[in-house]
Amino acid sequence: MTPNKLVFFFLACLLMFTFSDDNLVAGDSDKVKLNLYYESLCPGCQEFIVDGLVKVFDSDLHTITDLTLVPFGNAKISDNLTVACQHGEEECKLNAIEACAIKTWPNPLILAYAKQTLSLKPKHKYVPWVTVNGKPLYEKVNDFVAQVCKAYKGKSALPKVCNSSALSKSRESNNVFKLQVSYADEAINY
């Protein structure tokens, strides 16, 4: 990732933290629950945030979306609650910093995100792992805008981005976007 994209990635994360929420599935709100389970140094996660998830804010999709970011990804927790991240110690530090940015003191740390990630049903297979109303998108992740539009059952009008011409443009651009993923069963860097 180029230095400019890396800076944009972190700025995008900070902006998105403002909109993060703890709800996993649709409840009292009419909004679609869009969750991103990721790890900070995963190239595919960075790419998805910069090139994909940013569409929530580049359009009016944010009006029907409750976005939750969960910075844990494919990390593992030992019996003594030590976290080992897939991309090494630096990633663990960055995940913890992002967790702190999402939740303000005194409840900032990564173990809550570990619990949230490790209790997913079905279990995540890779990151970025995106769910809409608690259901994983799997190969439809590149078309997550259409999936959010489809999942919206609220009374307000659909956002402009959900109209068919905007979605077809989005789908056309997604055909060239091949998402990289980091599989959960890949080796962990210690």
Rank of each mutant, 00 (worst) to 15 (best):
L111M: 12
I49N: 05
I77A: 15
D58A: 13
E47Y: 09
A96T: 09
T65E: 05
K121L: 11
E39W: 00
A84Y: 15
H62K: 14
V83H: 07
L61V: 03
T65K: 04
T82P: 07
L111H: 11
L111C: 06
P71W: 05
D58Q: 14
E39Y: 07
D60Y: 00
F57N: 09
F48Q: 01
N95P: 06
K76Q: 14
K123M: 12
A101W: 10
L111T: 11
P122V: 01
I102K: 00
A112Q: 10
N74P: 09
N107D: 14
F48K: 01
I97A: 15
A75C: 10
I110Q: 07
D79M: 12
C92I: 03
L109T: 14
K121S: 13
Y113T: 04
G73E: 04
V70F: 05
D58S: 12
P106R: 04
K93I: 14
S119P: 08
L120E: 05
L81N: 15
T82V: 11
G52V: 01
C92P: 02
L111F: 07
I97Q: 11
V127E: 05
I77T: 13
K93E: 13
N35S: 11
Y38D: 06
D58I: 11
V70D: 05
L81W: 13
L36D: 03
K103R: 15
L53H: 00
L111N: 10
P71D: 06
G44P: 00
E47W: 06
A101I: 14
K121M: 10
P71V: 09
F72L: 04
L120V: 07
Y38W: 10
A114T: 00
L36F: 04
V130D: 02
C45P: 03
A96K: 08
L36E: 01
V127G: 06
T65Y: 07
T63V: 05
L81I: 13
T63P: 02
S119G: 10
H62I: 13
L67F: 03
N80R: 15
V54E: 13
E91R: 03
Q46D: 07
T68R: 12
L53W: 00
Y37A: 01
K123H: 13
K55A: 10
G73D: 04
F48S: 02
D60S: 01
N107L: 13
P71G: 05
P128N: 02
L94M: 09
K76H: 13
K76W: 09
K103V: 11
K55T: 11
T68Q: 12
V56I: 09
E47T: 12
S40D: 11
P71H: 03
E98Q: 15
I49K: 01
D66I: 05
H124Q: 12
K125S: 11
K125M: 08
K125P: 06
Y38T: 09
W129H: 01
V70K: 05
C100G: 15
P122Y: 03
P108T: 14
Q86G: 02
T117A: 02
E47C: 09
Y37D: 02
L67N: 03
N107Q: 12
L69P: 01
G52C: 08
G134V: 02
V56D: 01
K103M: 14
Q46F: 07
L109M: 14
A112G: 09
N35I: 04
K125A: 09
